[in-house]
Write a protein that binds this DNA or RNA. Sequence first.
RNA 1: UCCCCUGUAGCUCAGUCGGUAGAGCAGCUGACUGUUAAUCAGCGGGUCGCAGGUUCGAGUCCUGCCGGGGGAGCCA
Length: 464
Amino acid sequence: MDYFKRTRVADIILKEKVSVGQETIVMGWVRTARESSNVAFIDINDGSCMGNLQAVIDNPTNFPALKEIATGAAIRVAGTLVESPAKGQKVELAVKELQLLGKADNTYPLQKKRHSFEFLREIAHLRPRTNTFGAVGRLRSKIAYAVHKFYQERGFYYIHTPIITASDCEGAGDMFRITTLPLNQAPVLDGHIDFNQDFFAAETFLTVSGQLEAETAALALGDVYTFGPTFRAENSNTSRHASEFWMIEPEMAFCNLQENMQIATDFLKYLFKYALDECADEMNFFNSWIDKTVIETLTHVIESDFVRLPYTDAIKELEKAKVKFEFPVKWGIDLQTEHERYITEQVFKKPVIVYDYPKSIKAFYMRINDDGKTVGAMDVLVPKIGEIIGGSQREERYDVLKAHMEEKGLNLDTYSWYLDLRQYGTAPHSGFGLGFDRTLMYISGMANIRDVAPFPRVPRWAKF
RNA sequence: UCCCCUGUAGCUCAGUCGGUAGAGCAGCUGACUGUUAAUCAGCGGGUCGCAGGUUCGAGUCCUGCCGGGGGAGCCA
């Protein structure tokens, strides 16, 4: 094969690395083929970029392979790069050799026409060959790289927290069980399943968050981040929830809540700017075909100062609102989607960080403020989605944490290692979580999380 | 889990008052001297999600189940 001799389409039409007159080999998949008696055109896409390379065949009768070449076929073409006499493309390939590598017959499900995303989900193995899913795939890769780049440039260490866990990051939702016990005849002891006989000699689950483990790393390596899969067994049937999704969780030692907010702000702006700068073609595509406001929205966020608003003030804003909310507002409630969107879209019209939430509605590990009623939690709210980041300063005081855990009815034995962190060399520290797939939805304008994950897992769907 | 919508050709959909199945695209065949999701002509294509019920007769009305979408909750 000519793997090392082939030129990627991106290098030809985007980066213009090939000059006119040069002999070129291109391999890819046929998007459309148009044939008349004296000339044939084949649009080739090789996944390297949005655009296709137009291959031109001047004397179709000399290329019998053409008969079998239809949308979806994999082909190899060799020829000379020439200036295109027609509109639509700067350059094209004047074909000298044409080879069919893998044909696609008339059962190939992708048409030249637009398909519904619902249909494409059922052929998740073929949908990356469409413009939209090709663009999503490239964006996902680039943004994943940008995540690492942001933290690595700032001296953070990338840590791998366990995917199989025996502890529950409290409040983060239902978990998937991991077991090798036979489901129909699990060993029973005193009326309960005897997990001592299970593979790990303990009850184990798929992780819902790497945060608690990340804290152990932060209190040794200083600044760390996780970036990996997490799992929720919630029966959530919405366009924003998946049962398996990727999350980024930075954790910083010697960092308070306000400093945490600054990192969250810088991080979001960095990712959005990276998308606009490094995925320009894809972003233009999304802006034309998916959501005509995405570029404007991202640009606005990048240029905005994020408002920092204490929860108590947020409640005041909501109370003086003229709109009627489905969920009535009063101090102590958790903010609903409608409240979050009202604050960020109507009141401030830019990202808002709400912080110092009531203790009762937040998790046990959040640092209790001096008022005794609120904790150092923060949520970053952005227009169009609402909450995109949730984070907090962690409780570093042993006695306070222990009392809070007892108050919430947690099993101290399970978390003894977590309490140990406060027993030995404790330090103020903070962190937050950003859902990677949701970030991609925000950047691309794609409305359903099932369409930004290559193989989404949601209730009743784990195909491919 | 709750509320609303929806399921008809490979795809996107129409189908009126209950009267026996239709369009565009795709596909196939042919035409065409540079096309751009080419164009033009012709052709084939259906277990109307599944099961039951009402009726002389059901794609259409009713019940149940299953699938899909939107919104809410939970959350990221």
